[in-house]
């Protein structure tokens, strides 16, 4: 009976148009997102494979792209933009992979930050807390999948895990809107004009959001770095404090 219900639900979803699926997925409907993924996976895989000439790399890229798509879904204003946007993400990821000879092979954002941050503040308003939870969950599951994956070498796994943890920690200093726009810029490397169209705001606003977000993230990075540094000092048993005499002149 249960099986039957699921089957019929799947059949129902298959009949829904892309735009409606995106709308559904935006409300947090996971099956709708699943259907979108099923529909566009092949196409996305095609783009990625054409660019990388490597089916395994293409598979990774598509997975990454779809997760990023999910991260941003809640903020997509214009559902018509889902496909072009997914395509942009796939392209950027593929180029990044080609440039670096593997996902983030030589260069890795946020790798140097240990995850020493205190747990995220709980005082978020309920609506935004919900939004954050879902992103946190996605990051957590990404983290799990990275750990379980055998195809990468251990260094890559660790680097990637650290990056995800780093992003997780650092993005908590931004408010919801800043975070969404920063992610669009950071992950997808879209032009501010494209982001503006997506979020129905002006380009100058996007620039403001990005620079504001960068500043906040920068401050947070410094906090994280100092915390990590002081932890290392403690572990090495270095002095906690020392004060020389104040100079007389």
């Amino acid at each position: 009976m249960l099986l039957h219900t699921e089957q019929s639900k799947e059949a129902d979803l298959a009949a829904i148009e892309d735009d409606d699926l995106v709308d559904l997925a935006k409300t947090g409907d996971h099956p709708a997102f699943g259907e979108l993924v099923r529909r566009h996976r092949t196409k996305a895989f095609g783009w990625a494979k054409k660019l990388t000439q490597d089916p395994f790399a293409a598979e990774d890229i598509v997975q990454d792209a779809l997760i990023r798509a999910f991260l941003h879904l809640g903020d997509l204003v214009d559902t018509q933009r889902f496909m072009p946007w997914l395509r942009t993400i796939v392209h950027n990821l593929a180029y990044m992979k080609l440039r670096r000879g593997g996902p983030y092979a030589n260069e890795m954002p946020f790798t140097s930050y240990s995850s020493q941050m205190s747990p995220p503040a709980k005082e978020q308003a309920s609506a935004s807390a919900h939004h954050w939870d879902s992103i946190d969950k996605v990051l957590d599951s990404l983290n799990q999948s990275v750990t379980n994956k055998q195809s990468y070498d251990p260094v890559t796994i660790i680097m990637r895990k650290e990056m995800l943890e780093g992003i997780h920690d650092l993005l908590h200093c931004l408010n919801k809107r800043e975070r969404a726009i920063f992610e669009s810029y950071f992950f997808s490397q879209l032009r501010p004009a494209e982001i503006a169209a997506m979020f129905q705001t002006t380009t100058s606003n996007v620039y403001n959001y990005i620079s504001n977000s960068r500043r906040k993230v920068q401050q947070e990075r410094i906090k994280v770095q100092i915390t990590g540094y002081l932890k290392t000092r403690r572990e090495l048993g270095l002095p906690v404090a020392k004060k020389l005499a104040s100079p007389p002149y």
Binding site: R233, A241, K243, L244
Partner: peptide, 9 residues
Amino acid sequence: IYGYDDSQQ
């Protein structure tokens, strides 16, 4: 700079 205190940063 002639002194430091890690606990107060």
